[in-house]
């Protein structure tokens, strides 16, 4: 104990005694992980976007070549369009249906906890595995949806769910909405439960209709949590990869390629790490815009509706 050199003793002392030393020591494991495997890769990704790196070979700096190449690449712009379409349509549907489900679950129901538990299942089960079930449901010949519709006499031949560009887009959006509704619904339900019933009662006594109560009481009070939930939902949808990879791999004729799947396809099977990284980097501004839009767009409504700051 006493044979320790004075200097290392004082560092040890600083680490164990002082506020900052202890904070540093406690932050160390998490910081090392996040710096090595999150911050560094993020920077490396930006750098790789400026190189012609391939798998197992370090690239040389090529400046903006990857981006210039992408700028002239119609497939890239198609993937940007698809990502926007996918995010906007799926997010709106998830929000509308999720809010509806949350409002239903906020009623006084028998077996409420049971319903809440089973409704969250699509969110709990691994996406790839539930996407496989959708793949089977969307089968071009033996789709169960086609079978039911044909038996009802609504259609005469099986729907080509994943083979036709328009249908494929609708199908992947439907699968994404299916998976996202529980998250939105259960999160909004948690928000709804903090709104006191007495406000609704008072409004009803004053003659407000149920629609007025919904728009004038429930929505304004729910807005802060809607902003956060939808920001996360937009984030997850925008960067979605698994569902597309299982269902269509970007096809037919790139109609469902999202930026994430295109980046994977170019980088890993295609071997062009640099180009893939450039696509991933190109996602960042769109992603930031989407997040800022959904967060501040919804936050502002709170202020407009007199919800206080």
């Amino acid at each position: 104990m006493q044979a320790r050199p004075a200097r290392s003793f004082s560092i040890l002392g600083w680490l164990l005694e002082s506020r900052n030393g202890l904070g540093f020591l406690f932050m160390l494991p998490a910081a090392v992980f996040l710096l090595c495997f999150l911050t560094y890769p993020l920077g490396l990704g930006v750098w790789l976007g400026f190189t012609d790196a391939r798998i197992g070979r370090e690239g040389i700096f090529v400046g903006l070549e990857n981006y210039i190449w992408l700028f002239d690449d119609p497939v890239f712009w198609l993937s940007v369009f698809n990502t926007m379409l996918y995010t906007v349509v799926a997010s709106i549907l998830k929000f509308a249906l999720g809010l509806w489900l949350a409002l239903i679950l906020n009623q006084h129901l028998p077996f409420k906890t049971f319903f809440r538990a089973i409704i969250l299942l699509p969110w709990v089960v691994p996406t790839v595995l539930s996407a496989l079930a959708f793949w089977w449901i969307y089968d071009s010949q033996f789709s169960i949806i086609s079978y039911v519709l044909m038996n009802l006499g609504l259609i005469s031949e099986p729907i080509n769910f994943l083979g036709d560009p328009g249908m494929a887009r609708a199908s992947v959006i439907a699968a994404n909405v299916w998976r996202g509704i529980p998250f939105v619904a259960i999160s909004l339900l948690a928000g709804l439960q903090t709104i006191p019933q007495s406000l609704n009662e008072a409004a009803a006594l004053d003659g407000a209709t149920s629609w007025q109560r919904f728009t004038k009481i429930t929505l304004p009070l729910l807005t802060p949590i809607i902003a956060v939930v939808m920001t996360f939902s937009v984030l997850f949808t925008f960067t979605d990869f698994q569902l597309i990879y299982v269902l269509t791999r970007g096809g037919p004729v790139n109609a469902t390629h999202l930026m994430a799947t295109l980046s994977f396809q170019r980088a890993i099977p295609g071997g062009q790490l640099g180009e893939g990284a450039a696509i991933a980097v190109a996602m960042i501004p769109f992603l930031l815009a989407a997040i800022l839009f959904s967060f501040f767009g919804l936050q502002r409504r709170k202020w407009q509706q007199g919800g206080g700051d």
Binding site: L38, P41, L42, L48, I55, T239, A267, L273, A280, M283
Partner: peptide, 9 residues
């Protein structure tokens, strides 16, 4: 989906 390429590297 932004990190997987540099992480693979």
């Amino acid at each position: 989906s932004i990190l997987f390429i540099p992480l693979a590297f």
